[in-house]
Amino acid sequence: MSDSSSGSSWLERLGKVFSDEPESREDLVESLREAHNEGIIDADALLMIQGVLQVSEARVRDIMVPRPQIELIDATEPLDEILEEMLESSHSRYPVIEDTKIVGILLAKDVFRAVVKGQLQSKEDLQAIYREPVFVPESKRLNVLLRDFKESRNHMALVVDEYGELAGLVTIEDVIEQIVGDIEDEHDEEENDNIQKRAGEIYSVNAITPLDEFNGFFNLDIDEDLSETLGGYMAVQFGHVPAVDEEFVVDKLVIRVTKASERRAELFEVRPLKEDEAEQAVEQAI
């Protein structure tokens, strides 16, 4: 088969899937799932496209690191203590606070360069390499924030609430992870890797997540004698190997298969049950 005929076949199949123009976001997602079922796009591509759609709806508050979890540098501390803190935490960027005001951003690479060149002998030297902080409202949409990051070549912003108070921190990596999934580096801790927060109240959960961990995280009471893992539990509930897009309602949560092989489910999306879905479930149960 020639490349041209192969390409024509691919386009014909894609055109067939979208023969009825989607009238809503839900219709578009359903068409994309059908494209996956037809073998036009794979599971990873489907997840990424769905992530792009979520980014266009979600806001900064949905993914930001809240203030209590931010590694802040206190500008009033001695220079050696500040450097020790940076060395122990191993982040790339640090907001600097003095009293209650953010006075700058310290980049680890700037500090390292100054130390190597012998140009960091005092607190004044440290202040000289502060970067200007960038502030964004917590209501800002993620797709707009991503565009701003790209245009400014800045990779971190401080999030402020409606009163102008520091509410959190967001990075370009946080936004990209909503599209491609969790990005790990050598400094990421390996705690709770099985459950990752996506935009809003949506979570991505590995099938190998132990049921006790899943119960504890979502405050559920699933019988742990049924299976050791979430994937095993879902297989029991379906009575077969779960396929992509199959859903199961547990308490007030919807668990949907987002990635699966012929032998097992690999990844789930967990989200709250919508009000209309709850009413429909009650009607079906009657």
Rank of each mutant, 00 (worst) to 15 (best):
G164H: 13
R198Q: 09
D174S: 08
H155R: 14
V180Y: 03
L158W: 15
L142E: 01
L145Y: 02
I202L: 05
F149A: 07
L211H: 04
D182E: 15
V170D: 06
Y163E: 07
V159H: 08
E191M: 05
E184C: 02
K140F: 02
D193A: 02
R198I: 04
Q178P: 00
E186D: 11
N206C: 02
V134A: 13
L142M: 00
P137H: 14
I172F: 02
Q178T: 00
E184D: 07
N194W: 03
T171G: 07
A157C: 10
E184L: 14
D182C: 08
K150S: 10
I208M: 05
N206K: 11
L146V: 02
E177I: 04
F135E: 03
G200E: 03
V180L: 09
E165S: 10
E190S: 03
L166K: 15
G181W: 03
E132R: 15
E184S: 08
E165H: 15
V144P: 00
E173P: 07
N143W: 01
S152N: 10
D188Q: 09
N154S: 11
Q196G: 00
P137C: 12
K140A: 04
A207R: 08
Q196Y: 02
V175G: 01
E165L: 14
R198G: 03
I183M: 13
E162Q: 11
E189L: 14
N192L: 13
E191G: 00
Q178V: 00
G181E: 05
A157W: 12
E190D: 08
I208F: 10
H155F: 11
H155W: 10
I195W: 01
H187V: 12
G164D: 13
P133C: 15
G181N: 07
N154D: 09
A207T: 04
D212S: 05
M156Q: 14
V134Q: 14
D188E: 12
P137G: 08
R153I: 01
T171I: 09
M156T: 13
D188W: 11
V144K: 10
S139M: 07
E190K: 07
E190W: 06
I195K: 05
N192R: 14
N154T: 14
I208R: 13
V159Y: 13
E173Y: 10
A167T: 05
D193W: 04
E162Y: 11
N154C: 11
G200F: 04
F135T: 04
A199I: 03
A167E: 09
Y130A: 06
E189C: 03
V160W: 07
E201V: 01
R131K: 15
E132L: 11
N194E: 10
D148G: 02
V160S: 01
L146F: 10
Y163C: 06
D182V: 09
G168K: 12
A167H: 11
E162V: 10
T209G: 03
A167I: 10
E189R: 15
Y163L: 09
G181A: 03
D174K: 07
N192W: 08
G200C: 05
A207G: 04
Y203A: 00
L145E: 01
I202V: 15
V136D: 03
P137K: 15
